[in-house]
Design a binder for these strands. Structure first.
Lengths: 191, 191
DNA sequence: AATATAAGTGAATAAAAATTCATTTTAGCT
DNA sequence: AGCTAAAATGAATTTTTATTCACTTATATT
């Protein structure tokens, strides 16, 4: 046989895990839960991952990669800064809203014994494009001249909170509400 | 005998739990860990709390209460809005920086099966003064006319992120850095 | 000092969860 | 169709963790 381990099944496992974390938190998620939610046997999880630790690290890495990848989709580095920034901001917001469970999972992982230093390191490296973006804004004197890391944390933090707030309040983010919120963020960062 | 269960011991248990959550996450904290960290026997935990669930809920409630209590310390409702707002903002920031482990714990609790609806409800009720504060700012046309809940989430969210960023980067928040960050927040919220 | 009761202990038990593995099913290949 | 090896299974096992409880220690009251 040539068939290699099914990517579709890994996705299925990941989806199940995300769903459970959003519902019960990382601490309340067992391998039994995951398998049941994914509709497979517990043993099957161990065909794809050697341990719960590995499963969680793999999920963390996959989430991180996918979110960064989506963030810059359609971004034209040559267009003026503000519209470009806005484009990316909207990409991120859309992603976070559509993948709420992922946001929750990532937040929970931040302080957890599961994520290894190595996984963390690799995630950090993926932040480089965001740093470049903000640096450009600072160079063009459109963005406040404050530590870039701080500005990024601020920007991402506000989005996280906005997404949480939106999700729990049940308010739908129509175009005008999104605009207002972007202005909130832009007013904070702009020089 | 009249002596009632020692408040000092409860504090000791709480401190131990917070330390562990910050280090290993909520999911990695066992009753055994807590007792060892607190320097008491495992059984003693059950003298003070009927279960792990109860312990965590009690800690959550205590943290929430203490943070709200500190936030408004020294606030003069009669002084102009911006300095008053700034005063509270600084109270919160100071509190979060000095009680980093608590912030981590609260964040982790947000999505966890431990916190009961009742505990959550009571925590929410403590937010009323923040709502009043923002409402006042809106009435005086100093704060953007956006959903109050959103503005509060935004304000708190940015502080959380700032605190995380500060904690991990190892950068000390000197006076000027704090000022810049307050401006960041104020620029976002101001009308 | 004697007594009574609360507080504290930690080994023993029970409950929950992770992991293994002998076995069965599935899918590609000739 | 028959063969082969990967994939999947889930009951059994191991490991971890929460909880109990018979007992000891500390403390207030008389």
């Amino acid at each position: 046989m040539v068939k290699l381990k099914d990517d579709k099944k890994i996705t299925q496992i990941f989806q199940a895990a995300l769903k459970l974390v959003a519902k019960k938190g990382l601490s309340g998620m067992t391998m039994g839960d995951i398998s049941k939610e994914a509709g497979i046997a517990t043993g099957t999880l161990y065909v794809y991952f050697t341990s719960k630790d590995e499963l969680i690290n793999a999920l963390f890495a996959a989430c991180r990669e996918s979110s960064v990848q989506v963030s810059f989709k359609g971004y034209q580095p040559h267009t003026p800064f503000k519209p470009g920034f806005r484009h990316i901001w909207l990409n991120i917001l859309r992603y976070k809203l559509q993948n709420f469970e992922e946001s929750v999972f990532m937040e929970q992982c931040y302080h957890s014994p599961f994520i290894t230093a190595d996984t963390r390191e690799k995630a950090q490296q993926l932040s480089a494009p965001f740093y470049q973006l903000i640096e450009r804004g600072k160079k063009e004197q459109l963005i406040k001249n404050i530590d870039t890391g701080l500005l990024i944390t601020f920007m991402i933090g506000t989005m996280n909170e906005l997404v949480k707030q939106t999700h729990y309040s049940g308010i739908t983010l129509n175009r005008s509400r999104v605009n207002t919120t972007f202005d909130l963020c832009w007013d904070a960062l702009k020089a």
